[in-house]
Design a protein around this nucleic acid. Structure first.
Lengths: 109, 109
DNA sequence: GCTCCTCATATCGACATTCGATATGAAGAG
DNA sequence: CTCTTCATATCGAATGTCGATATGAGGAGC
């Protein structure tokens, strides 16, 4: 598990989708929101965040447009597309499946 | 999530440790046991299994010795070391932490 | 106007893990 | 003696995260 890599690989995408399902945000805003949603368990570094955002956008799950942050900075705002919403549902179900399997395995006598 | 890679990256090690905590097994036996423990959710391919076993052994969490399988085949039997047992406890706790964070995040309004 | 800090986005190389394919060899069945 | 199964093993490709580093603009203080 997170030994060298604090983040469990593959879980970041669904967290980003979830963060953006609640409200559109710019990049660093997503990072903060994920951190908050996971009660600080996930700290998303820029080196992970931006590749992930680009990846999700390229897959058509996010739509981006440039705007201004609360501090008058140039910021790229992301929001969930319809396909992204569907993907979120799919990945959430998949996560539950995996978590259930892990739970069953780790709690075996 | 498991899109291109069916296994959630980083979860295999703890499952192997768990499988061997219940009883010593040879390589393919571990694979079968993990599959059974996760109710079929995890199917561990040889290309993932053997590197993982070697990795865990190298870290001192498993001890291996050659023996004979039930079918009279030459097989390498693995068992958990004391350090492995400690590692299992550690990774189990870590999993619970991550799973709890994911659960909180995905169930947020 | 100048300097410094913070916000915001971005990219790069390194690293670990899993996958798919392929290989070897021995036991047992027919 | 051939074919299938069991058992271990390795290799190259793909993926995702990290650490470091870079750029540039806004705002504060002097």
């Amino acid at each position: 598990m997170p030994r060298h890599t604090p983040l469990l690989q593959g879980t970041l995408d669904v967290l980003i989708l979830k963060a953006l399902a609640l409200q559109p945000l710019h990049g660093l805003g997503v990072s903060r929101r994920v951190e908050q949603l996971t009660r600080g368990a996930y700290v998303v570094k820029p080196g992970s965040l931006f590749p992930a955002l680009h990846r999700l956008e390229e897959n058509g799950w996010l739509a981006a447009e440039w705007g201004e942050s609360e501090n008058n900075r140039r910021a790229k705002y992301y929001k969930l597309t319809a396909a992204g919403r569907k993907q979120l549902a799919h990945e959430t179900a998949e996560w539950r499946r995996v978590a259930g399997a892990m739970r069953a395995a780790l709690e075996a006598d």
